[in-house]
Amino acid sequence: MTILDVKNLKKYFPIHKGLLRKLVGHVKAVDDVSFSVARGETLALVGESGCGKTTASRCIMRALQPSSGEINITIDGKTTDLAPLQKAELKPFRRHMQMVFQDPFSSLNPRMMVGDLIAEPLLINGMDNESERRARVRELLDLVSLPTAYMNRFPHAFSGGQRQRIGIARALALNPSLIVADEPVSALDVSVQAQIINLLLDLQDRLGLSYLFVAHDLSVVKHVSDRVAVMYLGQLVEIAPTEALFVTPRHPYTEALLSAVPKPDPRARQERIILSREVADAANPPSGCAFHPRCSFATDQCKSERPHLQDLGQGHQVRCHHARTLALQGVGPSV
C-alpha cells in the first residue's frame, strides 16, 4: 500500500535579469520526477549537491509550490493530491507528514526553549491544554533518548547530534506517518551519524513510519533504505531495490557514486571513478542525455537523443540508452 505517490513532479525557478527583471530562462531544479513510497518503506533519494533533492522534498512537503505534477498522499485509505491545494487547505495534511532538516543549527529557532519548540506543532494544531502538551513533550524527548530536564534549555546549549534529536522529536509531535528527511546526518560528525541513523531506524520499527530519505552519497543509504532513487540534474536516472542497485547498477552515474562507497573488503577495492567536469548547469542542461559530457561510455546517440526511463523488470528502472549492454561494476553482494 503506497502512502506517497509522486507523479511527473516539476519545479522550475524563473531566472530574471536586469533592471526590468526580464525573464531569461528557468532553472529546472526538478524536472519530471515520479516515484512512490510504500507504507513502512524507506525510499532513498540520492544525488550530488545541486541536483534538486531539497527542492523535490520541499515541493512534496508543500513548502514550495510545484510547477506541475501530482503529489498524492494516502491517509486512512483516502488519497489526496496536495499539488493544487492552497495554504489553508494544506493544514489538515501537515500533521501526517513532517520534515527533518539537513542543518540542525538553522532548523531550530534559537530564541525558543526546547520544550516550546517541540510543543509548537501541538499548540498550532489545537492541543490547548498546557499540561497535556508538556506531558507529550516529555514523551517525545524520551522517544529520542534525551533527558526530559532539557525542556527549559535553549538550542544553543546542544551539539549537532542532540539538536537533530530535538528536530526529530518536533517532527514526531503530531504522530505523522510519513517523514521526509533531507540529508538528516550530512551536517553531523561521522561519529554521531550512526547514532542518528540508528535512532531513525528504531523509530521506524516502533512507530511504523515511512521515510523519504535524502542523501548525497550512497554509503549512508545502504543500511537504511529498501529502495534507492538516483537523481541527476533534476531527473531520476535509476531507481531500484537497494540490493539490486548496489550489486548490479545499470547507470554509469550510479556506478560512479558506488565507487565512492568505502568497501569492507580491502582486496575488492576498485578504482574510484572520478567524474570529469563539474555537474552541469540546471539552467542550461546539455542536449541529449544530461549526463553525457561526464560519461565515459557516451556515444553520438547520447549527445543528441534524450533517453527515457526504461523498465528492466523487478522494480529496476534506468534512464540510459545503453543500460542493457554496459557491464557496470557494483560493490559485490552486501555482507
Binding site: 512537503m61 493544514k91 501537515r94 500533521r95 532538516f101 532548523s107 529557532n109 509548537e120 506543532p121 498550532i124
Partner: peptide, 26 residues
C-alpha cells in the same frame, strides 16, 4: 530562507505567527 521559518510553516503556523513569533524577535 532560514530553515526554522520553513519548519514553522510545515508545522502549520499562520503567517501572523511566523512574522510576529519567529521573525520579529529575531
Amino acid at each position: 530562507n532560514e530553515d526554522f521559518i520553513a519548519a514553522a510553516e510545515l508545522a502549520g503556523a499562520s503567517q501572523f505567527r511566523i512574522i510576529f513569533h519567529h521573525m520579529l524577535p529575531s
